[in-house]
Amino acid sequence: MRRYRWFVVPALGVVMVILGFLVFTLKDALVYFRTPTEVAESAAEGRVRLGGQVVPGTIEESPGGVAFDVTDGTTTLTVAHTGAPQQLFRAGIGVVVEGTWDGAVFHSDHMMVKHDEQYRTEDGGTYHPGGYPTGDSG
């Protein structure tokens, strides 16, 4: 049964290497969505996920969908979404949309609403979607 120890040390080593790989190398691949700044800087490519906050006053119903602006505080992109918006979709909320960027408009056909870590009563504190959605905030 002593030989079992010879297995434990390399096994631990392998686990550490995998963890290190996950944390450092795959950091970018594990990012669930891109910010408007990142999408605007990138060349038009395949399907991407774009995440940001819906700019109040920009929501317009369009035939078969809805159009609105999404911002990360630095860059604002216009999204043309096909399909019904999510139940909780509204001005100021975080959204993640999936689709393609043609250099001017982001064409989305799949929308998810992102809730942040703040929970406010209706008559309680003000809802601050502050710093959204840099992703590397604490």
Partner: peptide, 16 residues
């Protein structure tokens, strides 16, 4: 906190 996710960050077990 390490990766940008759809899931919201922690509210209870967090700094701040």
């Amino acid at each position: 906190l390490w990766w940008r996710t759809l899931h919201q960050p922690p509210t209870v077990l967090r700094p701040g």
